[in-house]
Each structure stands twice: as structure tokens, then as C-alpha cells.
Design a protein around this nucleic acid. Structure first.
Lengths: 112, 112
DNA sequence: TCTTTATATAGCAAGATGGTTATATAAAGG
DNA sequence: CCTTTATATAACCATCTTGCTATATAAAGA
């Protein structure tokens, strides 16, 4: 579950969420992204690296610039996981059932 | 944006997601949650504290036990944020504004 | 009361994170 | 060429995270 790890932890930082919000308006270069934040360019570069690593943004090369944009497909896995969780929550809420159903707990790996 | 910070970073940990997945089956005590993981009880207690802080679980008191269960309302804010992001992504994708830039395949990049 | 059970807290070490400044690289433009 | 512009990388530092063990607390049970 490395993907969910990196995706959720990428989203855990407010600066990175703000960067994504900015990219929701359209493509932007590193300097354009850095400007609104009171933060050095290297710091923004590293945030972008994290976002790219999480598959949340993609970049192209345009001369010396590296414009970033959102990577739509990345949200899918997150959504899927949250959907399952939300369903489970609704189910528990509806049934008001605090009884343990069957517990399926293998070795070290976990899956919803 | 503290709520989103704590919620997303709570979800960033695989153990905590596994705990939520377990709670999706129904209420469970700390020891019940600790058992499937090869992890000490204090470690699990602290994970639960994080999840509670993020509003993702709630606990009641039952003698010496503190059974946990999912807190359905917590997912709302996360969903809301992700929805806005997803919409923006879809919008960008529809407009194909990146194609307007130009057609280029520079270096090894990722694209569906 | 004394012991057991369930959970929480304290204190520590290793590693991750997020910021900084200084420097490297690489394309663009004179 | 040399300089500027755009971005990346390195080195450093402070803080947070996550695991551990040992201990505290509090209810239950003998």
C-alpha cells in the first residue's frame, strides 16, 4: 500500500494542498507556484517532487521551465479507499452493530 | 486547515488505515486491535489517539475497556476537498489546455 | 485488600520531514 | 562566450513520528 501512503502523506501538508489548488486553475511553473508562498524556491521544488512521487502531478519540459499540472488518475485510488471506508461507516451506523463479525487478520499485511 | 492536515496525515499510516479497516467490521477494544499487528499495545494506543484526534474514531468507556468505533461524520471534509480537486482535474482534462501548449514528447515521461 | 486486566503515559532512539542557504546545471539571450 | 533565468541538488538543522520498554492508573475479581 505504498501508493496510499505516499498519496495521503502528500496531501497531509497544507502547502502541497495549496499547490494542488493552484494547479486546479491550470498549469504553472515552479516560480509561479513559489511566488504566493513565503517560501524559498528549493522548498517548493521539493514539495513538487513529493507531489510528483505521489502521482498527483505531472511535469513537462519547456526550455528551462518545468510546468506542472494535475494528474487526474491519481485521485482514483484514494477515492476508492475512502469509498470503502465510508460505506463501512454507513453500514455500522445503520446496523448499530458493534458485534465483531468474522475477523480476517493475516500476518503483517492489511487491507480494507 | 488543521483538520485536513490531521485527517490526511492520520490516513497516511498503513497501520492506522488497517485499524480503520478492522473497525469497519465493528467496534473493538485496544487489545483486540493490537492483537493482529506485531506491535506493542502502547504503539496501538498512540495510533488510536491520532485517529481520535483526527476525528476518525470515537471511544466509549466500558469498565476498564475503551472500545473504539468509526466516526462516520469525519470523512465529510476529506471528501469535500477531494471532490473539489477531482472536479478541477476533470475540468483541466476536458479543456485539454495542455494540448494547446503544443505537442511534445520530450524525455521519459508518464502518461496514460 | 491484593492481584489481574485494560489502557495510558513517559522517556528514549532512529528515521522522516520541512525549512534554510549555497551551489550546480542547463537552456536562452545578448 | 558570458550572463540571466529556471530549476534541481547538497548540506545542515530543528522538529515530528513511530517504534520500543518501563511504569502508572483504574476498574474487576478473588
Amino acid at each position: 500500500m505504498k501508493n496510499l501512503d505516499t498519496a495521503f502523506s502528500a496531501l497531509a501538508d497544507p502547502t502541497r494542498r495549496a499547490i494542488l489548488a493552484r494547479l486546479a486553475l491550470g498549469e504553472a511553473t515552479v516560480m509561479e507556484l513559489a511566488e504566493p508562498f513565503e517560501m524559498s524556491q528549493p522548498a517548493v521544488s521539493r514539495h513538487l517532487k513529493v507531489l510528483e512521487g505521489a502521482g498527483l502531478i505531472i511535469r513537462r519540459v519547456d526550455g528551462t521551465k518545468r510546468p506542472c499540472r494535475l494528474a487526474p488518475e491519481a485521485v482514483g485510488e484514494i477515492d476508492q479507499w475512502l469509498n470503502r471506508l465510508r460505506e463501512a461507516m454507513a453500514r455500522n451506523y445503520d446496523r448499530l452493530d458493534r458485534v465483531l463479525a468474522e475477523i480476517e487478520k493475516p500476518t503483517g499485511d492489511q487491507q480494507p
